[in-house]
Simulated assay, not measured.
Amino acid sequence: MSRLITLVTAMIATITTPALSQTCPPPLNGAVRLVLVTAPDMESTGGLLQLFARETPAHAWTPASTPHPVRLGKHGLAWGIAFEAYKRGDEREKTEGDKCTPAGFFRIGPSFGFVASERHNYITIKPGETVCVEDPASPLYNTITQRVQLAPETKADNMADTSLFRNGLFVDYPSDRANKRGSCIFIHIWKTPDTPTSGCVALPEPQVKALQQFAEGGAVLAVIPQTARDRFPTCLPDMSAPHDP
């Protein structure tokens, strides 16, 4: 009888206790690897990055690295596409050219770099060829492609022109070219520990390489100001207090 009671109690707990992921927004709700970036507030140009993992979306997050500093957009953060409902007051929404890092949860796409690699979907950056399209008039907006695929007047970032892209990862930011909601968001090498970005997440090269390996099997990037953590109850793991160096 006691065994039956124990079994029934466990079944009730399973039914009445939701998985940690069920109240969290996609793509975080199904993620098992997390790159968490927290900043003090929406105006911050720096913060902390820490890696987390969990066995399944129903399990709690456990640290997979220690926190370390990152640089963010020159104008701080702005809520990315699909996360407008979480903004409060006069907090900004991400737009093309605003030099803000998008806040929200986004899948991390392929790694890239100047040297060829056997990583899955890896993109080798080739001088004069590899570009990321920043022109909302182009149907290839917010994609990495070859210059030859574009019209001559199309605005695109020549990725081989900066050593900051010697190693990096493409953020699968679900932009909207009709409303010019931003494009070409990367995790890349920082210029200096004090230099903000044009809207990307930047960190030292050894940590970029470690992140390429961590995200190879799929990972989600979370960029959240500390002032908005309570808008995602139970979704985010605890982390050391972020700072804005």
Score class of each variant (00 low, 15 high):
Leu51Cys: 08
Gly46His: 15
His68Asn: 09
Val70Ala: 12
Asp41Arg: 02
Val70Pro: 07
Trp61Val: 12
Pro40Arg: 12
Pro67Asp: 04
Pro40Glu: 06
Ala39Gly: 03
Pro57Trp: 02
Leu49Asn: 01
His59Arg: 15
Pro57Gly: 07
Lys74His: 06
Leu51Ala: 05
Ala39Val: 01
Gly47Met: 14
Ser65Leu: 14
Thr38Cys: 00
Thr56Met: 13
Leu72Glu: 01
Gly47Ile: 05
Leu49Asp: 02
His75Leu: 13
Leu72Met: 02
Phe52Ser: 04
Ala64Tyr: 03
Ala53Trp: 00
Leu49Met: 03
Pro57Cys: 06
Leu49Lys: 10
Pro57Thr: 02
Glu43Ser: 12
Ala53Ile: 13
Pro57Gln: 06
Met42Lys: 04
Trp61Ala: 06
Val37Leu: 02
Pro67Thr: 05
Ala64Trp: 03
Phe52His: 05
Leu72Cys: 01
Ala58Thr: 12
Leu48Lys: 14
Thr56Asn: 14
Lys74Tyr: 03
Ala60Val: 07
Ala53Thr: 15
Ser65Ala: 07
Thr56Gly: 12
Phe52Gly: 02
Ala60Ser: 10
Pro67Tyr: 07
Ser65Ile: 13
Gly73His: 02
Pro63Cys: 03
Arg71Asp: 15
Pro40Asn: 08
Leu51Phe: 10
Ala60Arg: 13
Gly46Phe: 14
Glu55Ile: 01
Thr66Gly: 14
Glu55Asn: 02
His59Pro: 03
Pro40Cys: 08
Ser44Leu: 12
Leu51Lys: 07
Ala64Thr: 08
His68Ala: 10
Ser44Gln: 14
His59Glu: 06
Arg71Ile: 11
Leu48Tyr: 13
Pro67Trp: 01
Phe52Ile: 03
Thr66Trp: 04
Thr56Val: 08
Thr62Asp: 13
His59Ala: 14
Thr45Asp: 11
Ser65His: 04
His75Ile: 09
Ala64Ile: 07
Thr38Pro: 00
Pro69Leu: 02
Pro67Gly: 04
Leu51Gln: 05
Gly46Ser: 15
Gly46Cys: 12
Val70Glu: 10
Ala60Glu: 15
Gly46Met: 13
Ser65Tyr: 08
Leu72Ile: 05
Arg54Ser: 09
Gln50Leu: 13
Pro40Tyr: 01
Met42Trp: 10
Pro69Ser: 10
Asp41Glu: 06
Pro67Arg: 04
